[in-house]
Amino acid sequence: MSGHTRVSQVRRGAPASLALLAAFFAAWQWGPSLFGIPSFIVPPLTMVAREFVHAWQFDHLLFHTGVTVAEVLVGFALGSLFGAFVGYLLGMSPTAEFVLSPYLLALQIAPKVAFAPLFILWMGFTVYPKILVAVLIVFFPVMVNVLTAIRGVDPDLINLARSFKATRAQIFWLIEFPTSMPPMFAGLRIGSTLAVVGVVVGELVGGNTGLGYLLTFGEGQANTPMVFVSIVMLTLVGGVAYLGVILVERRVLHYLPARSANRGL
């Protein structure tokens, strides 16, 4: 039933969506000259494409993308693991939450990207400060979602497990942990895009690798097409990371009703 409407939605929506993309590309290609905008302000599509090939051949575009991807992956993995761990810990110990919550709140309010220069002072122009910013920025959405999920577990479910003489560990692994999965994935989705932000800010601040570096390099040379290429690549990296989370989520949360329908990405 819902699958049917979904199919007809795709049938009607896909051409419109593709037409919109074509219109966007056309506007990018011919719009600037039409309005007399010089190409060093908004380079047309073909110029950016040419720069992409050039950067691939001579500016190690693939290498810089690889560095950024690696930093994003490591930062995202560590940040979510750490966030989930602290979320479970605080969720199960109200005392720990009471003691730590003001400090966690302060850290959450502080703009994480502002730590980037500090981390570079500490760790130099390596990949580590970039990873650390990503870890910090991914940590919060995952931690908060896991904590809220653990708090929200139906007490009757816990009582059911207790009535079967479940141990604390069994209650966690059989009830609490699986219950926290859907909110945790919501946090991971947010985290996957934020990880890219954290890494890029780190790369912008210092170092000579990564797409963020390429961005500042292009800026320094007034090479606007290169800036555009970097932005496009960063968007791709974020998109792929987000898609990766969605794919894993679909596998893990396959039991949820009507997951694919009416949900899009």
């Binding site: 009757d156 009535s163 079967f164 039991y255 949820l256």
Partner: peptide, 16 residues
């Protein structure tokens, strides 16, 4: 909790 007693509520409490 006692292994000889089991309870059932109005809510089915099935794990999704």
């Amino acid at each position: 909790a006692n292994a000889h007693v089991a309870f059932m509520l109005q809510k089915d409490l099935l794990l999704p």
